[in-house]
Nucleic acid binder design. Structure first.
Length: 752
DNA sequence: GGCAGCACTTAGCACTCTTGTT
DNA sequence: AACAAGAGTGCTAAGTGCTGCC
């Protein structure tokens, strides 16, 4: 595979986040082949070292900065003050507070406010209703509120439709505005994006559904499948047996060997035992679940070996359940529900080093369930002999069903599919917010650079954190309850132990090395040069702190977001991720797409652009278990193809020689044929190599997450339209459903 | 302002289905 | 037809951010 990376530099170097050191690049090129495992990190480094959007600026400013050096020194005062106070006021203190806290970006939507000082308080309700406004008019500069008139018309239209129609009956579509085709097909797609949204904070007017599908009841084991304690068979009570089967089913999984898992499991298991069982079963080590485990393995084998008819039957049954429970009616439309099945009981599998792993996840009963639907709908029936916990009619929320889960005590919901109006609108809105950020991001960047020099510690911390969020696409980093979850962090919750500072490293100045576990306990490792002032600030923040102290002890996400809100209406930390992801895709596509190339090559370029984003956002995956093998197979194919190619070339050569001597039509023709054959084989080889490259580069990188959550689909749709690439090559069926709005509305000149 | 509760988005992994190959 | 690999889907954990209360 080595040698196939000719596109690599292409991919990264011409990206939006240009590396500033050529030496560095070359170094990586070498390394890349040697240490494939670290490739992802390397690529990320290459990609991220600079952000061209403001890189130049920063370099220029660098010199200026020298002049203001003394100001850095001035912060020492703060540091000292800070030092004394740190311990007691950790995190929360706000020196010089009041000043700005009441600020809001309310009056100036898509732009930032310079430094407002007013104490105006705006009603959250009002704000909310503003946010409901559609704001897809990216082309108009800084336009406060939407054109009311037309919206009102449309809103009225919607209302009328609802009034005239009797609640649920018309599932299909609203005959709106008369500009849509008359309805013929029952399954005509509803273009919700051509309608107006609710502006009053409500999410729907009418909602009817059939409630959740419960997990199948426990089926006791056949009597021949035995559980052994201390070598002796023992019949368990149904309750204890069920929990035992959960453990048995996970026996091959490595975490049944983990101490915490076993401890938590055993503790919860004992709660389900009869008092007699409790007294006997005192040591998990003496429990033998292997017969149970074998039994379940055999069952799953049997399921696989089922006849076609049997499988068909199950499929049909699933389809029936889907049709009955998988849809709801929301405001005249039949919409797909995302997760209509209640989570079955089992053992909790947290990610990473989770303190609660192995705990029993309780079975959910109708009595745990809250139903949400409209008053005038046909309410779902609880299973015979049971009751719902509650039936409510709250149209300010989008969920249909909820229950409280017993591990963290958090609420779980049944909600609609991403293809639904309610999810789609929100998604669209998210990208519009990101596009508004695009308009003011330069200002925000300038501002946080200024803030690096602030006299106030909290402002400096805020500014450095924001720089990380912007440059490295870090997550906000909310505080978490200690001991309740795995120890992971985001930007605001970074601790001193998570970064290392190198005044100089590998020929670069002011390098920061990040190494921490982020969401889902995925490791974030990155070594990146930062601007001098950032570096100095970090040194300051770290002074006199223990490794497990907060790096930004005067910052949290709510402070940060409050500040962002002042800079732009609707701006929060996560918008930067969306913005940077989407803008990177757009730039990468511009850079990488080669007009000359054929469709597969263009798609490779797309994947590369997508990958650049995934690297930026640190979207990882475990390398597929079969990775090495499948790579070998592919390599074998490539080798075979190479042989075939040299053979074809040889034939061509001899044909040419032949033609030179004979000079007749026939031999000329033979040359042509051979030429074509060579070409064909070359193409095939190219294709295989491309495939190998693509796959290798993708080893530990997950593209799906960014595609689904961070990349404005209109960018991809526009790209497809521009280059005549079928959108199916980029989005599969589900994705096309989710992004139907984008596919319908984006033309080839769409600009994020 | 600090916290808890709530609603909603984002995330990776395991399993299943589909497709292409032998 | 059997099989393997890859694509697609379902599942549910783990984030973000807002609100309302004290």
């Amino acid at each position: 595979m080595s040698g196939d990376h000719s596109h690599n530099e292409n991919q990264i170097d011409c990206g939006s986040r240009v590396n500033d050191s050529h030496k560095h690049k070359d170094k990586y090129k070498e390394k890349e082949h040697k240490h494939k495992d670290h490739k992802k990190d390397k690529e990320r480094e290459k990609l991220k070292h600079g952000n061209s959007d403001y890189k130049d600026l920063s370099d220029k400013k660098h010199k200026e900065k020298e002049k203001i050096k003394h100001k850095d020194g001035s912060t020492d005062k703060y540091k000292d003050k800070h030092k004394e106070k740190r311990k007691e006021e950790k995190t929360k203190s706000l020196d010089g507070k009041v000043k700005k806290d009441k600020e809001n970006g309310f009056a100036s939507p898509p732009h930032f406010k310079p430094e407002p000082e007013d104490n105006f308080y705006h009603s959250p309700k009002y704000e909310k209703s503003l946010k409901r406004e559609r704001d897809d008019d990216h082309d108009s500069e800084i336009k406060p509120k939407k054109i009311k008139t037309e919206n009102d018309k449309k809103a009225k239209k919607r209302k009328q439709d609802e009034d005239t129609k009797s609640k649920k009956t018309k599932i299909k579509k609203e005959p709106n505005d008369g500009k849509k085709k008359a309805k013929k097909e029952p399954e005509e797609k509803w273009k919700w994006w051509e309608e107006e949204r609710y502006t009053d904070g409500s999410k729907w007017r009418f909602l009817e559904h059939k409630g959740p599908v419960f997990a199948p009841p426990y089926e006791p084991l056949p009597s021949h499948v035995k559980f052994y304690y201390d070598g002796k068979p023992m019949k368990l009570s149904p309750g204890a047996e069920e929990v035992a089967t959960f453990f048995a089913k996970m026996l091959d999984h490595e975490y049944t060997s983990k101490d915490i898992f076993r401890k938590n499991f055993f503790k919860d298991w004992r709660k389900e035992m009869t008092s007699e069982e409790k007294s006997i079963l005192t040591d998990l080590k003496k429990c033998n679940f292997s017969e149970m485990s074998e039994y379940f393995k055999a069952q799953s084998e049997a399921r696989k070996a089922m006849t076609k008819e049997g499988k068909q039957k199950i499929k049909e049954e699933n389809e029936r359940i889907l049709q009955e429970y998988g849809f709801c009616i929301m405001d005249n439309h039949r919409e797909r529900i995302a997760n209509f099945r209640i989570e079955p009981p089992g053992l909790f599998r947290g990610r990473g080093d989770h303190p609660k792993m192995g705990m029993l996840k309780r079975r959910i009963r109708p009595e745990d369930i809250i139903i949400n639907c409209s008053k005038d709908s046909k309410h779902p029936e609880p299973p015979p002999g049971t009751k719902w916990k509650e039936v409510r009619h709250d149209n300010k929320v989008t969920w249909l069903v909820s229950w409280t889960e017993n591990i963290q005590g958090s609420i779980k919901y049944i909600m609609l599919n991403p293809s639904s109006r309610i999810k789609g609108e929100k998604d669209w809105q998210k990208y519009e917010t990101a596009r508004r950020l695009k308009k003011c991001v330069d200002h925000i960047r300038n501002q946080y650079r200024e803030d690096w020099k602030s006299k106030e510690m909290r402002i400096r911390q805020r500014a450095v954190a924001l720089y990380f969020i912007d440059k490295l696409a870090l997550r906000a980093g909310n505080e978490k309850e200690e001991g309740e979850t795995a120890d992971t962090v985001g930007c605001c919750s970074l601790r001193v132990e998570h970064i290392k500072l190198y005044p100089e490293s590998e020929g670069q100045e002011f390098v920061v090395e990040f190494d921490f576990l982020g969401k889902d306990s995925i490791r974030y490792y990155n070594k990146v040069p930062v601007e001098k002032r950032v570096f100095k600030n970090l040194q300051l923040f770290m002074e006199n702190k223990e490794p497990d102290d907060d790096l930004f002890d005067r910052l949290n996400t709510s402070i940060l977001n409050k500040h962002l809100q002042e800079l732009m209406d609707g701006l929060t930390a996560k918008v930067f991720r969306t913005y940077n992801a989407s803008i990177t895709l757009q730039q990468q596509l511009k850079e990488l797409t080669n007009t000359e190339e054929n469709i597969p090559a263009k798609i490779l370029s797309y994947n590369r652009a997508n990958r650049a984003v995934a690297i930026l956002c640190n979207h990882q995956r475990a390398p597929p278990k079969t990775f090495e093998k499948s790579m070998q197979n592919l390599q074998a194919k490539i080798d075979a193809k190479r042989d075939q190619l040299s053979e074809a070339k040889r034939e061509l050569k001899s044909a040419k020689a032949d033609a030179k001597i004979r000079k007749d039509e026939k031999s000329k023709k033979a040359v042509e044929t051979k030429k074509k054959a060579v070409q064909r084989v070359e193409e095939q080889l190219m294709k295989l190599e491309v495939q190998a490259t693509d796959r290798e580069e993708n080893k530990q990188i997950a593209l799906g997450t960014s595609k689904l959550n961070y990349l404005d689909p209109r960018i991809s749709v526009a790209w497809c339209k521009k280059w005549g690439i079928p959108v199916e090559k980029i989005y599969n069926k589900t994705q096309r459903e989710k992004f139907a709005w984008a596919i319908d509305m984006a033309d080839e000149d769409f600009e994020f």
